[in-house]
């Protein structure tokens, strides 16, 4: 009995350690500056001043739309092309297929630091600095996504595909009308991982985007915090951070199980 209590006490303590800072952050965004040092979670006096400062000082709405557009486009592309290449690699045989597979495995072993600068200079030379292409195009394809699709497609019975071929379906029809509708689990996994990675990334946008109108949300929030625009107002910095976290938290609240399982597959395959 004592032991069970101890286990629950430890688990609850852990939950407080992870949850309390977030709750404090949320409440701090509604507190006047003087109240910020307190541990209490319900502000004595609620103020919208912090959010007003964020919306007047930085193009946060524009940044939100930029991030949404960039992440959604790249994610769609990663899913469509991932499924296409994954289908070719698992269901069609052609000379050089294994070579492509090995190339994918090889690219996944290369640390990003190695190609970061050459990739950046390529973007500049293409004239893509300060453009949506710079943010989207390098991330349109993912070797990892291809492998996930390939692995899933291999579990689909060959007889189903043969039957469709006999019925006169083209390979494109088989992929988009028969195989993909069966593949919701991989699509969600790839979708969540790609969207989250794109949404949270800071380093790449910092390198290729200098025009404030094209900046992504993490970039704008980070620069707001360190660039002095927040006038050292802690509440406003936290308000900007809260706005950045909100979409992912909202998605996580509904699909936490899928999030966790998707992330676990990256670890276990990586």
């Amino acid at each position: 009995m004592m032991k069970r209590l101890g286990i629950y006490a430890a688990l609850i303590l852990g939950a407080i350690v992870f949850l309390y800072p977030f709750l404090w952050m949320l409440s701090a965004t509604f507190k006047p500056e003087l109240e910020l040092g307190g541990f209490h979670l319900i502000p004595h006096r609620v103020t919208w001043e912090n959010y007003r400062l964020v919306f007047t000082k930085i193009p946060i709405l524009r940044a939100f739309i930029n991030s949404l557009f960039v992440s959604a486009t790249a994610t769609t592309s990663v899913i469509v092309f991932g499924a296409m290449v994954g289908y070719a690699l698992s269901r069609l045989s052609f000379p050089g297929r294994d070579l492509i597979l090995n190339v994918i495995l090889f690219t996944m072993m290369i640390p990003a630091q190695l190609t970061l600068i050459p990739l950046y200079t390529l973007i500049v030379r293409l004239g893509w600095a300060d453009s949506y292409q710079a943010l989207i195009v390098p991330g349109m394809m993912s070797g990892f996504a291809i492998l996930l699709f390939r692995q899933f497609f291999r579990t689909i019975p060959q007889s189903l595909i043969e039957a469709a071929r006999l019925d006169g379906c083209s390979e494109w029809q088989i992929l988009f009308h028969i195989v993909l509708p069966l593949s919701k689990p991989v699509i969600t996994t790839v979708g969540i991982l790609t969207f989250m990675g794109m949404w949270n990334d800071l380093l790449w946008p910092l390198l290729v985007i200098h025009d404030r109108r094209l900046m992504t949300m993490p970039q704008v929030v980070a620069l707001f915090s360190i660039g002095g625009l927040a006038e050292a107002r802690v509440g406003a910095q936290l308000a900007a951070a809260t706005l950045l976290a909100l979409p992912i938290i909202a998605a996580y609240a509904f699909f936490q199980r899928t999030f966790i399982e998707s992330m676990a597959t990256t670890g276990l395959k990586g």
Binding site: M25, S225, V234, A245, I249, Q256, F259, M263
Partner: peptide, 29 residues
């Protein structure tokens, strides 16, 4: 234990949130 999924979800939450948010928060802590 009861509520295993809930505990797991709470411990996992900082993983999905941008490092930018976490860093700004901890800067205040």
């Amino acid at each position: 234990v009861r509520g295993r999924t809930l505990f797991r979800a709470i411990y996992f939450m900082p993983v999905v949130i941008s490092g930018v948010v976490i860093t700004i928060l901890w800067q205040q802590l």
